[in-house]
Nucleic acid binder design. Structure first.
Lengths: 339, 339
DNA sequence: CTGAAAGCGCTTACAG
DNA sequence: CTGAAAGCGCTTACAG
């Protein structure tokens, strides 16, 4: 077992050139002659040399590492987004240092600390809320932050979300125009901008349709909470015949609970979700839902982050991307709706 | 905007001590007086100093970064495992550099290259196959590798899997003892040890029960492939009344296809999966399946990796963890089975 | 185009 | 316990 740490100096010795020459051969854009390049590459090959990214990062001040902070991965939306994000960043020569953080301030603070210690070039958070003080810490260190699928009212942070207000309104219009008398809402966590905005859009939309205020229960983005909310709604004195659920992840829990209770979807109650995760199209759920355009959201996230990286004076951006309502079998349509 | 890069030298100046003293204060276990510690911490605090992990990594030769290579995240087993892994490693002061790689040799080779360049202390792969030559490259660099949920026959790599042979055999016994005449198998990718072993265990188990050889189709761990396999099986001349599916992810696709075809589970056909991902217990699927004990598998993976990190002469280990068959509603039981 | 030299921000023997 | 000094593996002006 060789256990070799081959350095540029080793390569230089074998190739009979200076260490700087070796460095240049491995620095894109540096000026080296053909002959030099050949000699060095040959020596490097024979020794199995590979430039040390850490040393390079120290000198250049660019680690080409992006810190990613995620709260949970059990909602299928996030693994899918992570997969895309990872590919998008790898293509551009960046790497992802990943952190799982709860949504407590301490956990996030600890993570930000580690992130800064590792000299990440930028930070992306998903389903995580960042306090203003942490954000300030990052921008003091000159590190851009982009919030994915979450906005931060007021804070000076870039964010990329879908058009949540409009999305909620779309669901309101759809449900109100269909054969539904009593509409309820199991909301996304109201402490998150995403959950809050969808709910506001929904309420506003319902009012515009001159519908009564619906019952609203906060499902906290949690299966169990959503399931219990469903039970209490359906066992109440005036069970709803339509429920808008704040995201698909909870909508599945709602449908599972309904099935357990012996109720049928959409026969007894129409269900509409939000996200359009892959599972939403599976036959078991066949869920009508608002699509969040993951691909475009990820592209926007990466572009925003990289542009801030390359131009620190760049203004922060709050990007919203609109997504369509996808009609499937979980919600009844108006009688005169196009089949 | 300060954009400060505060270094230990800055802190030293403010505290009126040497730079080495500052370093010691931030090095656990180094000897510093109370007074020194107080002075330095105060200065550090006021400047917002944080030791540079990259510089530290260069000196110590330990980056405390673990490279994680994953092929896909659409199978719910992996996000769950990643979440646990991340927590386990964070607790121990390690960080995860994540890479998505296809299962092509080139993609994996490129990733390994990056991993080595970033001086990772160790590598964990999940659902990825690593050729012997890549493994050799890593061990030449003195970097331990642990395969998670995949074995590598022959190669000198540590691995952690469930007891796949025994798991397959368990399913065979269960199905053979139940009211099933024609048993089929939609297998996990036969190019992976995991898929192959489950199939071998299943076939051996069926023989032990003196059952005829089942029809076997490779589902490639792919929803679409599994769905098509289901269709061709059920539309064949002798449709099965029980199917063992190589993992839960495909089992869901099988059940979705069955539903689309108007067939009932377990009425027309019993379905058994493998993994016991969270979704398996959801009412929509209620899947009988072999549990892979994720928590214990992750613990074993981390322990194996860290022990190899701390003792390079440590032997490689191939760990198998047994998991139970979880009975749910997707498969018929023998008449005399305990209810 | 090429080499000698300085320096990135640390840790760690080595003296005192 | 504390400080001066060397060195981790690179990049990058600066001369030639």
């Amino acid at each position: 077992m060789t256990e070799t740490k081959v350095t540029s100096l080793d390569v230089a010795r074998v190739a009979g050139v200076s260490q700087s020459a070796v460095s240049r051969v491995f620095t894109p854009g540096a000026s080296v002659s053909k002959g030099m390049e050949a000699k060095v590459k040959k020596a490097a090959e024979s020794l199995g040399y590979r430039p040390n990214s850490l040393a390079r990062a120290m000198i250049t001040g660019k680690s080409r590492i992006i810190g990613l902070v995620v709260a949970y991965l059990d909602n299928q939306f996030y693994p899918v987004a992570l997969e895309r994000l990872s590919h998008a960043l790898q293509e551009r020569g960046y790497h992802i240092l990943i952190f799982m953080a709860g949504n407590t301030h301490e956990a996030v603070a600890k993570v930000v600390d580690d992130l800064l210690a590792y000299q990440v070039d930028g930070i992306i958070t998903a389903s995580v809320d960042m306090s203003g003080s942490l954000a300030a810490q990052c921008s003091a260190a000159g590190i851009p932050v982009v919030l994915f699928n979450r906005g931060q009212p007021g804070a000076g942070l870039s964010s990329v979300t879908s058009a949540n207000l409009e999305g909620g309104a779309k669901v309101a219009r759809f449900l109100a125009q269909g054969p539904h008398e009593r509409i309820a809402h199991i909301a996304g966590w109201q402490g998150s901008s995403t959950g809050f905005d969808r709910t506001q859009g929904f309420l506003t939309g319902l009012r515009a349709q001159e519908r009564p205020e619906p019952t609203v229960i906060d499902g906290m983005y949690d299966r169990e909470t959503a399931a219990q909310a469903t039970r209490s709604l359906m066992e109440g004195s005036a069970p709803p015949d339509a429920i808008f659920v704040g995201n698909d992840h909870m909508a599945f829990a709602v449908m599972d609970m309904l099935k357990t209770m012996g109720l049928s979807v959409p026969g007894d109650v129409s269900i509409v979700g939000y996200d359009d995760v892959p599972m939403a199209s599976w036959a078991a759920y066949d869920l009508t839902t608002v699509r969040q355009p993951v691909n475009r959201m990820i592209e926007a996230t990466v572009e925003t982050l990289l542009s801030q990286l390359n131009d620190p004076d760049r203004h922060i951006q709050k990007i919203e991307i609109d997504g369509p309502l996808i009609l499937r079998g979980s919600a009844r349509l108006a009688k005169d709706a196009p089949s």
